[in-house]
């Protein structure tokens, strides 16, 4: 647009001309096509601005009004009842945690950890409360160490229990000691325990035979191993197949 047109047009549209000037300008527009087109273009530009502005303002008012509503609502929740809100959140969290805990499958590891916390640690520290029977706790601890294959700790507790009053040092405990000896690569010690058990004619006959067989194998006494394992093939459902496999290999 020509600068001289621009100044005139602005002056006309912004109502800065007097009546005479305005009339002269309108007459000039009729004669000068370029001026007329420039005026039209400026009007269209201003109308485009007007349309855009209205749309923008409408969006602004509507959005801000909506935001205000949401903010007001959230304020009434968070500021109006802060304690109620905090309490609700805590309760929901607590319920969620409890549900989560119970929904979790109890793994052997978790069980062990729990029992370890309850019994083993206090036993080893000598901090066991009076309400817990120390013999039971020690037995628990020995069993747990045994499960964890912590042979030395389990054996120490079992031997400690052996002399304790109120504890029945039964066949299970002895068998555990025998197996611990085997695991620690002390077959002679294991043999001694197992033969003692056999002599006492304890109830765990098949178990004793099985561990005796394994002990003889460790001692490379194949004949004795076959001798004690053979009866298991027919008589024991638990050890039968495994005994047969060993004998077949021998």
């Amino acid at each position: 647009m020509k600068p001289e047109y621009e100044a005139k047009i602005s002056s006309y549209l912004d109502n800065k001309m007097n009546d005479q000037e305005r009339q002269a300008f309108e007459e000039a527009c009729q004669k000068d096509t370029a001026l007329k087109e420039a005026l039209k273009l400026e009007l269209k530009a201003r109308m485009a601005i007007q349309v855009y502005a209205r749309k923008e303002r409408q969006t602004f008012y509507e959005k801000t009004a909506l935001f205000d509503q949401v903010e007001k609502k959230s304020q009434s929740v968070f500021l109006g009842k802060p304690f109620k809100m905090a309490a609700s959140v805590l309760v929901i969290c607590a319920i969620g945690y409890i549900v989560y805990q119970y929904a979790q499958p109890v793994s052997p590891q978790k069980t062990f950890e729990k029992q370890f916390r309850l019994y083993v640690v206090p036993t080893e520290r000598g901090q066991l409360s009076d309400s817990i029977n120390p013999v039971d706790s020690l037995w628990y601890a020995a069993s747990l160490f045994y499960q964890k294959q912590e042979w030395e700790r389990s054996e120490r507790l079992l031997l400690h229990l052996k002399g304790q009053e109120g504890f029945m040092f039964n066949d299970v405990s002895q068998l555990m000691l025998a197996n611990i000896a085997l695991e620690q690569d002390q077959p002679k010690k294991a043999l001694e325990i197992l033969l003692q058990m056999e002599r006492n004619n304890l109830t765990l006959g098949f178990d004793i035979s099985w561990y005796l067989g394994l002990t003889y194998l460790k001692l490379e006494d194949k004949a004795s191993a076959i001798e004690v394992l053979t009866p298991l093939i027919k008589k024991s459902k638990v050890y039968g197949q495994r005994a047969k496999d060993i004998i077949d290999q021998l």
Binding site: C29, K36, L39, K40, L43, K44, M47, A48, I49, V51, Y52
Partner: peptide, 16 residues
């Protein structure tokens, strides 16, 4: 009267 001769459709949305 000057603007009536022109087709104004679509032109007003050019700001976008």
């Amino acid at each position: 009267s000057m603007m009536e001769q022109d087709d104004m459709n679509d032109i007003l949305s050019v700001m976008e």
